[in-house]
Every structure is written in C-alpha cells, then in structure tokens.
Design a protein around this nucleic acid. Structure first.
Lengths: 204, 204
DNA sequence: GATTTTTTTAAATAAATGTTTAAACTTTGA
DNA sequence: TCAAAGTTTAAACATTTATTTAAAAAAATC
C-alpha cells in the first residue's frame, strides 16, 4: 500500500502504531512518530490532540486486533479438533504479520496501570469464550477427559503467543533469521494441537 | 529487610529494579528512582554514572535471575518426570515472588534493540540445556515418544511463564486478587507436567 | 586532631520532549 | 472568483528529564 495514497491522519496513525509497538509508550516520542509519518510534530497534535490520545487509539486498535480473533475463533461453530487447529493456524498467521502486537498490549498493561484500565473495562467483557463450555460438553459425552478447562485454554494461548513474546530472545539464542523463526512457529501449527488433543483424549 | 541497613548504592539499585520493572526503561525517570530510594537524583549518577548504566546493571541481574534457574534445573541430574515437576514448581515460586521479571526482560528486548544485544552475547551462551538431550535418550530407550523436543521445551517454558506475562490481563478478565492468581498458577504445577507427560508417554 | 577522601545536598545546566502559536498554503463551496 | 474552512509549516514555549557542579557534611586516614 503506497503510503502516498493515505491521508495524513492515517499516515500518522500508522506511524504511531509502528513506533509505539517497537518502543512502547514511554520510549516513543512525538518526533519519532512525525518523522516516521513524514510530517511534522504539529500535525500529530492537530489530528490527535496529544500523544496520550493517540496512544489510546493505537492501544484500543491493537487490543482488539489481538483478542478479537481469539474470541471469534473460539466461538466458531466447529468440532473441537478442527477448532483447535484453526485457532493455532490463524493466530500464528496473524502474529507472523504483526509479531509485536501481544508484547505491546501486555507490556502496556504492566503494574496497576490506570491509564489503560479505563479503555479496557468495555473491551474485556467480550471475553468468556464458549470454548470451555464446548470442552465440558465433549467431556460429558465421554469424548475427552474431564479436566480444568480454564487451564487448558490458558495453555493453548500460552503455547501460541509466547514464542512471539520472546521472539527476539529465541532468534538471538538460536541464531534464527525471521524466515527461520517463521518455520519454527509454523511447525507448532501441528505440534500444539497434537499435544493438546493427545492430552484431552487420554481418559484420566 | 529493613532498608535502612542497606548502603545507599544498594538502596538505589533496589529502587531502580522496582521502578524499571514496573515501568520499563522509557517510562522510568531518574527522579522516580531517587525518590523510591529515598535519596536525591545526584546520588543516582554519583553511584551509577547514568540512567543507562544503571539500567544495564538491573537488566543483567534480571536476565540472570530469570534464566539461570531455567538452565540450572533443566541441567539437574534428575529423572525426566521429577525434573519437569521440579522445573514448573521452582519457576512458579520464583515468578510469584517477582512476577514482573520476564515481562521486563522480554519487553526490553523488543525491536532489534542494540542497547541490549551487547550485554547479551555473553549471557546467551549459557543456554543450550541438556534437557533436550535427556528427552532424546528417553525416546531412544522407548520410554517416551519421539518428537520435536525443541518445541516441547518451548511449550514448557510458555506454559509456565506466559501466565505471568499476561498476569494483569488475567486478573482483570477474571477479576482475581493476587492471592487468587497465585492459586491459579499453583494449580498449574500439577497441570502442566500432567499434560506434558501424557503427551510424551503416548507412543506416536 | 588535622587532613584527605568519600558521601550527601541543593541548585544549576543543557538537552529533549509534549504542546501551542501564528502565519502560509490549499481546498471547498457559494 | 472570493471568502471560509481546513491543512501544513516553522518556530516558539513550557515542562520534564538526565546530568553536572560546587559546596557542605561525614567518614576515613594519617
């Protein structure tokens, strides 16, 4: 997408997203963002009033972009196995495109950060997926073991998202290029569902 | 530990650790740190020369504090099952004491941050655990299935560490107190090894 | 006990950063 | 075409922040 076709406002927001995701709110400066958007700092405040307001918009978008797909897929009307495979596949592809997304969202939620909590009380409600209910059903049908499905869901999230949170750590430790890292997470598309389903199908 | 028995230098470093872990390098200020250490900002530079230098020390410590136990336990001379249980238990207890540690380390490694890479070339070498070799052995003995053990180790790390990276997210979404959150991760001490071992023991 | 060194304090400095201003320029609509 | 509204620019402003200075206080050394 040739950036010259975007409005100034869009260019600034895109730049802000890039800078905020790379550096976090504290280390990002208005000048960084303006330069990255190929404009000047006055325009940043002209369109968004303040760094804080601009950040709030970027954070909201990023939060939604990260967690909407999660709830959407987990609420899909799909059999368990297909759903798990789909979830891992789609989330992995999303995070390959935007690997800094979860680190940004989670790191800005550190401490008892009140700055974020406001914009979150609305967004958090969307959660409470039907995934756990589906697992419960399958367990009652005797198709899978009975287990703490809250923990299962958390482990699923962890196995998919964690590699991106520690991406640079992994790349550094194993000397991987971006492409090789992508291979690594692609392998997990088979691996994670396999582990999860093996566990669930083993009658306890 | 009554902080009056600590030297000024130690008080400043402790304060720096607290502030840096809560806010990250960019949002932490020398004044924050000085105030938290109950001294003035000149002393911060007197003992540590600059915010950057102080940060480097805190980062090095935090990195070591987080990942030394990982390699230490994974290199322990223990049977597989005991080792996995011990790993999850010890790491969980460590992170309950210092829940912001992994977020701090990983978030400061975002982007192609050169600031960090220097102090890391030395530290990273310590890795390459014997854990994967042990899994390989067990597989050859026929005790566990053959699998991609790099992925298994990564999943183990993910399942233990991720809940702390998303701690505030989880607490917010499920309305948990710190104590309730601790209960949640304590349950995982059984849960994670159970899932991992069930998977490994299932002959593929 | 005097002197030297180390530590502490308060204030100053210089640079960076978020924000604003005012004028120039462009677009829009009558 | 002309005025009004919207957009852009460069510069200024005010605040914050990292860092330094210089003098005072405390501790150590002789």
């Amino acid at each position: 997408m040739p950036n010259s076709e975007l409005s100034t406002e869009e260019k600034i927001k895109d730049a802000a997203k890039k800078i905020f995701l790379e550096k976090g709110f504290g280390s990002a400066t208005t000048r960084d963002i303006a330069e990255c958007a190929d404009t000047n700092i006055a325009l940043v405040n002209y369109y968004f009033r303040s760094k804080e307001k601009l950040f709030q918009e970027v954070f909201r978008d990023s939060f939604t972009e990260t967690f909407m797909p999660v709830t959407r897929i987990l609420n899909d009307d799909l059999p368990l196995e297909a759903k798990i495979y789909k979830f891992v596949d789609h989330m992995t592809e999303l995070l390959k495109r935007d690997p800094l997304l979860p680190m940004f969202v989670l790191s800005e939620m550190r401490g008892e950060n009140s700055k974020i909590c406001e914009s979150l009380t609305e967004l958090q409600q969307q959660g409470s997926s039907l995934f756990q209910a589906q697992l419960q059903e399958e367990a009652e049908k005797g198709n899978i073991r009975s287990a703490n499905f809250e923990q299962v869901e958390l482990s699923l999230m962890a196995m998919v998202i964690f590699p991106f949170l520690s991406m640079n750590m992994i790349k550094m430790k194993k000397n991987l290029s971006t492409e090789e890292f992508h291979q690594l997470v692609d392998e997990r598309k088979k691996n994670i569902p396999e582990m999860l389903l093996t566990y669930l199908r083993q009658k306890g």
